[in-house]
Design a protein around this nucleic acid. Structure first.
Lengths: 251, 251
DNA sequence: GAGTGGTCTAGACCACACG
DNA sequence: GTGTGGTCTAGACCACTCC
């Protein structure tokens, strides 16, 4: 099965063969592939070589290993589509914030853990919010859960000068969320910018979001403007469970 | 250096230690870490164990290995920010398409390889474009390069019924690009939708985009509407070189 | 208990970079 | 040539799952 004269490393040949069997459907989504020791016999290479091949496919997100059970073809995850136009004022007033709006759209039971803290603005935050470095910011550090499973991390930072004395400094921001409180205090939101990127998770993120290997996170940095920048919100999402959908006018 | 009684695998302890040294700046971005054989001595474990630790950090995108040279802390890449509002008509008429617009903004020399083909619509394409499965679509398969380096893959599909006889079926679509040709033929663009997600690259994508391990790709599916859906464009970008920026009105 | 993946060793040889 | 990472072997023992 393995051509030792081709110059292609054995573990890559094995990986290519298994990948082909996944694509052809011979190994179906959710089904186990043969055990490592079986593959050792099939391909005539050592177990570390088989493990190298499996490691490569796990990295690509094609396989998932479960200790004591086997190695499985990654099942296709159900993807939630998060519409970013839900940031509009109409949608905001109709529910208690973007995440809760998504919950009602997605049919899952939401819960959130919030930690509030105050800290001096670091350079990036000061730059995005138009503050002097070191000015105090209110930090709302949240873990959003859907049916108990953590699905999004979100860290909002707002100038303390505009949150002092408001429910934004409380765990529960009240109806309409932090944006409603801002507008009540004269900070009428004009627009948002969202900067979207992706990277591999830190070990901590992988643990909280229960990501299996080979699953990147999508990073969204949202800056809310009410004339000036009033909030920067760094969000981290599991890329196998969420996609973002943006609406762009043609003119 | 390694606590064999802690229950934490040795390779993870080594990875955690190296990660800490990267975060503290002891191992600086772009600088090499000690050689594998040096680390074997430092931590008192075997070379495969050291390699497991390095593999973990490469997966996380923290380290880059170069054959024959060493293992380096990943340098922070220069990130291009792609503004999606550039899809607006004003910007379109001012230059020859979104990518070329980005080029002038980013100060790099663009080049593109285009392959045209015609094929029956698969299920997803038919669904997005509102066609019957099997209806013929025009496929524009492009590799965009900046200063010679491939930075984006883009595959556009349009109903052949609206591209027949137009420059959209040619390699060179002419001034303003395919969107300008659509509008000339009565398909006035109304809006776009962009669906954004991320995943690890296929081996082919990693090769074309010259991605090092631990770098996911951002996937953008853009659907262009002119009353009806007229184009679906699947784009693949290296996540360490590009971020997308979206502008969202507050109401 | 039997089978699975996870960790680890102590080597060997190859391929690549650089002086 | 010397040092680097890349590949590979033939084991061993551990931890977990399931019957």
């Amino acid at each position: 099965m393995i051509d030792k004269t081709s110059g292609v490393p054995a573990y890559r040949q094995v990986a290519t063969d298994i990948r082909a069997k996944i694509e052809s459907g011979e190994y179906a989504p959710g089904a186990p592939i043969p055990s490592e020791r079986t593959l050792v016999d099939q391909y005539g290479v050592s177990r570390p070589t088989i493990r190298d091949a499996i490691a490569l496919l796990r990295q690509e997100g094609a396989l998932i290993a479960e200790h004591g059970r086997g190695v499985f073809v990654r099942p296709r995850a159900t993807v939630q589509r998060l519409s970013r136009s839900r940031l509009s004022r109409d949608a905001r007033t109709a529910n208690r914030g973007a995440f809760l709006g998504d919950a009602s759209a997605g049919g899952f039971t939401p819960s959130t853990t919030v930690k509030i803290r105050f800290e001096p603005a670091d350079e990036r935050t000061a730059d995005l919010l138009g503050l002097d470095a070191g000015e105090e910011v209110t930090v709302r550090d949240r873990v959003m859960r859907a049916d108990g499973l953590a699905v999004m991390l979100a860290v909002s930072r707002l100038p303390r000068s505009i949150t002092r004395g408001t429910a934004i400094e409380e765990v529960n921001t009240g109806p309409g969320g932090a944006y409603a409180r801002l507008e009540e205090n004269g900070h009428t939101l004009t627009h948002f910018e969202e900067i979207v990127s992706a990277r591999m998770p830190t070990p901590e993120e992988a643990s909280i979001l229960q990501l299996s290997s080979g699953v990147p996170v999508v990073r969204v940095t949202r800056v809310a403007y009410a004339g000036r920048a009033v909030e920067v919100n760094d969000m981290t999402l599991a890329s196998d469970r969420y996609e973002l959908i943006y609406h762009i006018p043609a003119d």
